[in-house]
Every structure is written in C-alpha cells, then in structure tokens.
Design a binder for these strands. Structure first.
Lengths: 351, 351
DNA sequence: TACAACAGTGCTCGGTGCACC
DNA sequence: CGGTGCACCGAGCACTGTTGT
C-alpha cells in the first residue's frame, strides 16, 4: 500500500505552463494545436507519468471503452473460446471486455445488464440462458447502447446478431446416419429456451426427412443444460423396450455429451459398437477416447471475433446486421452402420 | 436504443421538495434526518426510479464496490469453480466481481491490474501465470488497495493469501503407490512458475522418502500448462528404455492430465493395467472413463468463498492473513499394484 | 439561549468541449 | 488559427445560515 496522489491533468497543465483545456485538446488529438504546444504538453505528460483517469472520462463522456458480455456460463468450453476471440479483437482496439456470469438465472442476467449500463459500457454482448422472452426483449430494446447477440435470437429488434448455421451440420450428420441405415435415432440436447437447441432440433428433423421410417421412429429429448439430465434420459432410452432401442444417438452440447457418455459407461455400452454416436460440438478432451467420436463442430473463436468486430462497427455507427457462421460434420469411428450395430446386438443376445 | 436522461439526485430533491444535500444525507444514512424527511426522500427516489450513478460515486469516493480478479486462464475448470465461490460471497455483499483474463502473459496481467486500479476497484484477487517475480512483487506492493493471492505465493508482503495444502494430497498418493510396490514413478505437471506446481513436486518428493529406491528411480517433469507438452513427455517416457519405463504416472493439472491420457490413447496404453495412474485435480468428465481414475482433489469453490471473505475483511480493515485449505487423495481403480502392472507387461512381452 | 433539523452554498473528484477572445 | 475560461458530468461533504421549539 502506497500513497502519492495520482497526477492529474492540472499537474500537467501547470508543468507545461498552459491551460488545462489545452492539455485536453492535445491528448485527444484536436486539430487546432500548434506543434510547439503539442510538444510541451506531451513532454510534461511523459515526465509526470500522466495517464487520464478513465472514471472521470466515463462520467464526462458517457462512454468507457468497456464492452460487457453477459454469458450463461463461461465455464463451458464453447464460451471460453468465444471470449478468447472477443478479447483478441477488442484488446487490439483499445477496448476491455467485462465478462459477467449469468449464473443460470435470467433475473441475475438482467441485473448484470443494468449494472453494465450504469457503468457506461459502450456495447453489450449477450449469450443468455433464455432468449425470446418478453422481459429480455424489453430490456434489450430499451438499451441505449449497441447490442450484439451471440448465438441467441430475438426477433424484430434493431440489434446485431452473430449466429451459427446449426442446421447444416446436424442435418449432415443425420443424413449420414440415415444412409448408414439407421431409422431409430435420438437427439439428446439442452434447453429449448435458446436458439442453438431449437436449430439443432430443426436440423435433426430436416435430416430425417429423407426417410419416412426414420421420421416415425426417431425423436428428440430436450430439457436442461445438465449432465445429470442427459444421463438419466439416455439411460431410460437405452434400457427401455429392446425393440424400440435407438441404434444411434446424437448429443447436443457439452453437458449432454458428458451425460450421454456417463450413461454409456455405467451401462457398459461402447459407442460405435453397441450404438452409433455423434456429438454436436467437438470437445478438446474427446481426443483421449477410442474409438474416435464423430462430431459436428463450429469455430467459437471465429464467432467471438465476428461479434467483437460487429459491435465495434455498431459503435462506429454502422447499422446492426446478422451474420452466420458454418457448422460442419466430421464422421469418425462412431458413425457405425446399422448393420454393424445390429450384428453386435444379436451376437450379444445369443450369449 | 432509447433516450430519456437518467434521473439524478437533483430530480429527487426537486420531487421531494428538499435540498440536494438532504437527499444525499438520507441515502447515506446520515444521523441528522427526521423520520418524515427520510420517508419523503425515499418515496420520491422510488417513484422516480432513482439509483445513484456508480461512476460519479467512484470518482468522488475513490471506491467502486468492484473487486477485480486477474486469472491465468479462466477456462480451466478449477478457476471457474473458484469464480463461482467468489461470486456467491461477493454478490450477497453488494460487490461485483470483474474477471480479467491474463492470456498467459505476465505483461498482459500487469496491464489488467493497472487497468483495474484506475477503475478504482476496492480489492484485487490474483491467480497469475507466474508468481514470485520481482516485477509482480513491485506492482503488488505498490497497490494501494487490499490484495489477496489465490493459490499463489509472494513472500514477505503484507497481503492476503488463500492456499491449498497441496503437499498432503499428493504425498498420500505417492505413499500409496510406494506401498503398492512402485519405485519407478513419474510426475508430469505444469509450470514451476507457480506455487501449486512447486508444492506438488515437493509433496511428491516427500512421498518418495519412505523408499530409497523410489527416491533414486522416480522423478518429475515440469514445464508448460499445455496438453501438447504433457503428451510429448509422457510418450517419450513410456516408449523409452523398457527397463526404465515407469510403472506409475501422476499428472498434475488439467492440461497435463489431458496430455497424459492422449498419449496413452495413442500408444494403446490402458491406465490401471499397463501402468498405474493418479491425476492431481479431479475433473468432472473423468467420470465417463472406465476404469475409474484415482485422483487427488480439492474444493475450488470453497477456496473462492474463502478468498472473497478474506478480501471483504481486509476492505473492512482486518489485517491480511494466510489460510490453508486441504487436498485429499482418493484411490480408485487405477491405483494398481506393481505386481499387477508387471504381470501384465510380461504377459504382453511373451506374446 | 440552546439545539435539532434541515436549506443552501460551494468546493472536490478528473476531464471534456464549447463559446469566446 | 491558436489558446483560454468556464460550465458541466453526478455525486459527496463540510460548513454556514435559517427556522421552529
């Protein structure tokens, strides 16, 4: 702990022998400054080690060079990657990212948003627990600073949106499974309160369209962002009526993936042999598993960069827009054919 | 986007028909206020939806009800749990946590710390990439607000510290392995630039003490916080001279654990059969693996709560202190005996 | 006269930017 | 054109003045 009051613009003015307002102009690159004046002020500032007080600047200007990001749960690998992307762009533009954890509660998220507004952030990024609620819509439309949604949706509002084209990836995966002969498939995923879940379900259904039988026998299970939920549901489905037991599972989101794999471990089910498996959102640590699990992936960091660029543009006066980033399916070892799965199952039954 | 200038203390004063200074006194619980006055002001404030401007308050008071946390990498599960603990305590005390990512660079971390200071945070929490460097020591000792280190060390400074007793946990694990007959063990872990790594190495060495032979044949590999590093080192060790091949591995930290498991996957090594394994820091998704991996664990959330409580105390004037939280070892399926490992290895050799 | 309970003034925090010279 | 003075952002706080009891 030390004392020594920080040096203010007054000190610089005194040192340089000029008016406070002149110092301000020099430092904010105002055109009307003589070269001599500029030099004197800059010298004085450097000698005193002056740097403007951001709090005072915020108060006066109403802005802060701060960008807020309210996120559902930043421990999720996807979001940490987004944050990396955001920071890489924001930092190099002199902005600082303020990440606020939503704690899984819409109420808390709204508190955070209000808090950020009071602190005069220059822009707000959002990946909330729930989108499309009247409450959220109200807050967002009343926000007097640029807003950009990250993989979330809210119709008919003049705000920015950076979205993933979830449909394409999961549709490709579903099509592949259909081509491999599967008709009884289950998509286990998170909460339908957010766009990714809804789009994944949509993509899954579109993928089923090529096969009327698959359409009839396959279905999705949506619910909560929790491994426990996915585990329970998977176990229920895999231990139910053997005749109706799915031959392929798709898991959407980290928690769902963990839950599905937990269930498999407990039941002694090996993905790719007892059942085909595609995870939606690849995870770094999945590499430790053999066989290699098929996955749909997306570039979270790119999304972060896109969102950051977009909000900076909006701060600069550009009109809000919507952009889409791709998702892609990569078949690995667990995209096994219906034939192989059935062969294994009957072999087991005979034992 | 909307307009409507925010309501200030003046508006409240006008509405209540009192002086601005009186409003200020009511809101800051000054003693000289009549019950009637208090009521009128509070009513007016509520009716107008007034809430004091935090930026203006910060400027005037020099404080902000903000606590900064500069963390090496908050995507690490350990840190996200710490953050949860921090927020639970801080939020209920009216403080807001500002998490800043260090990006793995000391330079950037120091920038963040300076930034937070300028923003007038009331306290600073630190889990940096490197501790004990003169540079960091200088900044910290010049910080005029309370500082609390989270699982980091910096000697002879009058600051708070919340530390894990890493030694006990890993020592117990090492002892167990020694008792299971192992003498050739390797600890693969992260960077020795931070306390946890140093303490783990220390605990490992203490655990080896009971066996002179183990002391001679076992060693540690420290380096970077990256899965790639751990993978490479593990592969080198496991494919080297068969006579010297370790019979037990301990991995310290998430990235090291991922790296070790990746290496095992690639080499077709199964933990608990080809080699004993203990991971230091349990991970939620490890549950999906069979056999169950033995682990040393610690309560990250409790650490967060402890650190938050400590910094609030310091803000309240309490002297900085140091507290320790325990770590514990739990033997699961991969704490296999030397005998079993050797039996499997010779069996393989004969094939 | 003494005191409680305000009102009102004015300076402070650190800067910004417009009007004016 | 170059530069200065000053009001202002929103609040905190100390101090004087006023009123009623």
């Amino acid at each position: 702990m030390t004392k020594s009051r920080q040096v203010t613009i007054h000190d610089v003015a005194t040192r340089a022998g000029v008016a406070v307002s002149s110092v301000s102009r020099v430092l904010s690159n105002h055109p009307d400054v003589s070269i001599d004046m500029k030099r004197r002020v800059e010298d004085a500032a450097r000698e005193l080690g002056y740097s403007p007080d951001p709090v005072a600047q915020s108060l006066r200007r109403g802005s802060s060079r701060l960008i807020g990001y309210v996120v559902r749960d930043f421990a999720t690998p996807f979001f940490s990657d987004v944050i990396e992307g955001l920071e890489s762009v924001l930092n190099s533009s002199g902005y600082t990212l303020l990440v606020m954890n939503g704690g899984g509660s819409q109420t808390q998220e709204i508190e955070r948003m209000t808090m950020l507004k009071q602190r005069r952030v220059d822009g707000l990024l959002l990946s909330t627990v729930v989108d499309s609620t009247p409450k959220l819509r109200k807050i967002v439309s009343a926000y007097d600073k640029p807003v950009v949604l990250i993989d979330r949706d809210l119709d008919n509002l003049d705000i920015g949106r950076t979205l993933f084209d979830h449909v394409t990836g999961i549709k490709a995966a579903t099509n592949d499974l259909v081509n491999l002969g599967h008709t009884s498939m289950v998509l286990v995923t998170g909460s339908p309160d957010v766009r990714p879940t809804r789009e994944r379900v949509k993509g899954f259904l579109e993928g089923l369209m090529t096969s009327p039988e698959a359409m009839k026998k396959s279905f999705e299970i949506t619910g909560a962002f929790s491994a426990a939920f996915a585990r329970k549901e998977t176990t229920a489905v895999m231990t139910g009526n053997p005749a109706k037991r799915p031959t392929a599972i798709l898991s959407g989101g980290v928690q769902a993936t963990i839950g599905v794999l937990e269930s498999f471990s407990e039941l002694g089910i090996r993905p790719g042999r007892d059942v085909a498996l595609v995870v939606v959102d690849d995870l770094p640590w999945l590499r430790i598993l053999r066989p290699r699990i098929s996955a749909v992936s997306r570039d979270a960091e790119a999304m972060g960069r896109a969102a950051a660029t977009m909000i900076l543009d909006q701060i600069g006066g550009v009109k809000p827009s919507t952009i889409y980033l791709p998702t892609s399916y990569e078949a690995r070892d667990t995209s096994s054919s219906l034939e192989d799965v059935m062969a294994y199952r009957t072999k087991m039954q005979r034992k």
